[in-house]
Write a protein that binds this DNA or RNA. Structure first.
Lengths: 196, 196
DNA sequence: AAATTCGGTTGAACTACTTCAACTCTTTTC
DNA sequence: GAAAAGAGTTGAAGTAGTTCAACCGAATTT
């Protein structure tokens, strides 16, 4: 790795490592440049990597029976992305993960992650915290999906991820929030007629 | 703890511990009996415990602006339950967690969990795996919510959790799956009229 | 054991959101 | 640089799922 600063800061915000440990840890990651529209995960293939976004934006999605595309997550700078169920359990993916801008990511391979976790208690702690954050994040999203209307979900999203909202195409935001692009367009332009 | 067998087996399925470690680990848990309708977590209070269900069934839910009750999760034997965002970050809960049958749980206090994780790499691994399972589980639920109709979600649920489906009241299942009790009732009795 | 509450059912009316189709503007491709 | 594809907008019609209200039986309370 050529050690991008933000990644090092991300690690240091999570666990306290010595210089040596930091070197060992970051050595397990490989820098990869992605062109817009390039895929890093596809259904039926096993997700080999977990990727930290250094620069750019990626989107993960599934295609339902009906052929409609549903955004499961996206990731911009300082976020992680993978197909969790594929990566963690090394079974075939159900998701696509694609770059929606030219991007740079740091990737760790499954086997290398296992090795790191075994080698050092602190590295294990790092991945434990990462998993907890993901679980807690998903929990909040589930609550939002169950309790809020389309318009509320969009407004919440703008408040929580203003920078993301500006960078992503609207169809990605709409399908992430569980609505059609058309409906999101109407919400944004106050074209939603209410019975109240 | 009085060491219920299923809990020990759960631990051994997750990490390999020596007799001594197992004793140290289980000592951090306290057995608690719950009467039906007893709450263990309530909004505005900090979730102090993570609870493993030895026997019985619990339900976690939030109440939306509209006053409607939404099931976030439930837990039967061999599952865990808590308000993750409250417990992990020790901030006020947004959820209720209540026993829907007389139940027995094993509870670990936040501070004790922290102590265990620091004390032994394997204990850290245990909680890392637990967090990963939760994250992966939530991911699957999000995909289901985004890609499937109410009826499909119910059928999927029956397939994946047949035992849970038999034990839980229907209003809990309905609100877990993101629909009303009335609609689930119609699905179950094939009273849903389709335009196809 | 009567009264109340709780969980579930049913039908009719309603609505939040989708679908479809047509159009515009921007970006990409050859 | 013309043509095609991609992203977003708008309106009209349609539908999956909600709401409301009335009812039933079983469990819980008094």
């Amino acid at each position: 790795m050529t050690e991008p600063e933000p990644f090092i800061r991300y690690i240091q915000r999570t666990v306290e490592l010595t210089e040596e440990e930091l070197t060992e840890f970051t050595a397990a990651f490989k820098l990869k440049k992605l062109k817009k529209k390039q895929f890093i995960i596809q259904p039926d293939f096993i997700a080999q990597y977990r990727s930290y976004v250094v620069e750019g934006a990626l989107r993960s999605y599934v295609i339902g029976q009906d052929g409609v595309d549903h955004t499961i997550n996206f990731a911009i700078e300082d976020w992680w992305v993978s197909d969790l169920n594929s990566y963690l359990y090394q079974k075939p993916a159900t998701m696509f993960v694609v770059a929606i801008e030219d991007s740079t990511v740091l990737q760790i391979e499954y086997e290398n992650e296992q090795r790191l976790k075994q080698a050092n208690h602190k590295f294990e702690t790092f991945f434990r915290i990462a998993a907890e954050r993901t679980a807690a994040f998903h929990q909040r999203r589930i609550i939002s999906a169950l309790t809020r209307t389309a318009e509320e979900r969009y407004n919440d999203f703008l408040l929580v991820y203003p920078s993301v909202a500006q960078r992503l195409p609207q169809y990605a935001i709409a399908s992430y929030l569980g609505m059609t692009t058309e409906f999101l367009s109407k919400i944004r332009n106050h074209k939603v007629r209410k019975k109240n």
